[in-house]
Design a protein around this nucleic acid. Structure first.
Lengths: 213, 213
DNA sequence: TTAACAATGTGAAAATAATAACAAAAAAAC
DNA sequence: GTTTTTTTGTTATTATTTTCACATTGTTAA
């Protein structure tokens, strides 16, 4: 059987991206797509696409390319959890709200079912169908709603305690958007992303490009 | 001379992160730090830290570690642009606002000097000191204010045209937060980040971990 | 003084990821 | 019906990134 565990991390990321491109193609009524078409959309090479698809065991049709619908379904089988995964957003600031709007209804297997905040004005409200609870009730709500992934969008000063509370509540994965790295036990999958780093990276390469001339 | 061009991309990202950790140490009055301390904060190995510092030519003191202040300054010399870089945010939705709050006053060499939107209610306002202009005036403002980096936080449907307009205005780097990949000429540095991909990746590894048991 | 320790710095090796090269075969062109 | 073209699938190669292993050397402690 296909060993999902051994798929390169980068391949996982690209599969998610291929699927999104493919969903757009499907909407447009396109039934087949060539590796080089996917590649052009994603700014990568066609070989890379074919290799990724090879790794997941998908076979296209020579000279016709890949069946859009089939490939979407296969990627879903690979990366999605069969029973779906419930997600919570912790911190209903601008970033938390951006994420809720952004995700709402986008992926059926990933459902944002709760948000948390400490601001009493926000608690009890609903946004894009997602109810906001008090951070104090986090453990209770996470267990009741079977929430397995938490997205942290709290201020940096609350990062540590939020991560601890999530772990305490039995969370299985954390996506940390605060600029402060957090520690979790190894059975919790942690992905950190820091916007300042991305911006500084862009600025660095802009500088380098200018020096070059 | 040190060849900045040849620093691995990953090293650049980590340097930005080391600096942030170091700034916190500096605030706390810590004068020296060991490689394994930096490593623990960033969830990486001490060897990785030492290797990165070796690449930028920084030498610590045996058994005392690295001088926090010196290292912060050196990282600044490496990744910052001497004359500073002006940045614009295009799209004043939740994400755009989150970024403005997030960055404001954080890095002196990276200044967000303008934001753009199509909503007349937002145009003319100022947020965290950043004035909002009409998207129609983008080229003019970007040239006048010497903006070199643009952060795209517009809805996906506007991604393509926004990127084209930025390129047209002579931008040198783009950080694209829309879920739609864009095309730019090779002299413009492009960094794309997609929140759905990150969330799907977390969900995937959560699934894998659970299957394992 | 000298042995043990704890840290840095780095060449070599391993792991991971991307690219090149090309065989195979369906479709199109002649 | 044969040749050319186009596209997939895959092996081999190269490039990048991380880790290992260990020499080196201040510092501490016996």
């Amino acid at each position: 059987m296909l060993e999902l565990k051994n798929l390169p991390h980068k391949t996982i990321e690209r599969l998610s991206q291929y699927r999104r491109a493919l969903l757009i193609c499907l909407e447009k009524g396109q039934t087949h797509i060539y590796s080089h078409e996917i590649a052009r959309i994603q700014h990568i090479t066609a070989v890379q696409v074919r290799r990724d698809l090879m790794l997941i065991g998908y076979t296209g049709t020579l000279r016709k390319g890949y069946n859009v619908k089939e490939l979407i379904d296969l990627i879903g089988e690979i990366i999605d959890s069969q029973e779906g995964i419930n997600v919570a957003i912790i911190g209903m600031g601008n970033l938390g709200r951006a994420l809720i709007n952004y995700f709402s209804g986008k992926r059926s297997h990933l459902k944002i079912v709760a948000s948390f905040d400490i601001n009493p004005d926000k608690i009890g409200n609903t946004m894009s169908g997602v109810p906001c609870f008090s951070t104090e009730d986090m453990e209770k709500v996470i267990r009741e709603k079977n929430i397995r992934v938490g997205i942290m969008t709290v201020p940096a000063d609350f990062a540590t305690q939020t991560a601890e509370a999530l772990v305490q509540a039995g969370i299985r994965g954390i996506l940390n958007y605060t600029p402060k790295p957090v520690n979790v036990p190894k059975e919790v999958y942690l992905e950190e992303y820091d916007m300042i780093t991305s911006l500084e990276k862009v600025a660095f390469y802009v500088k380098i490009n200018e020096d070059k001339k």
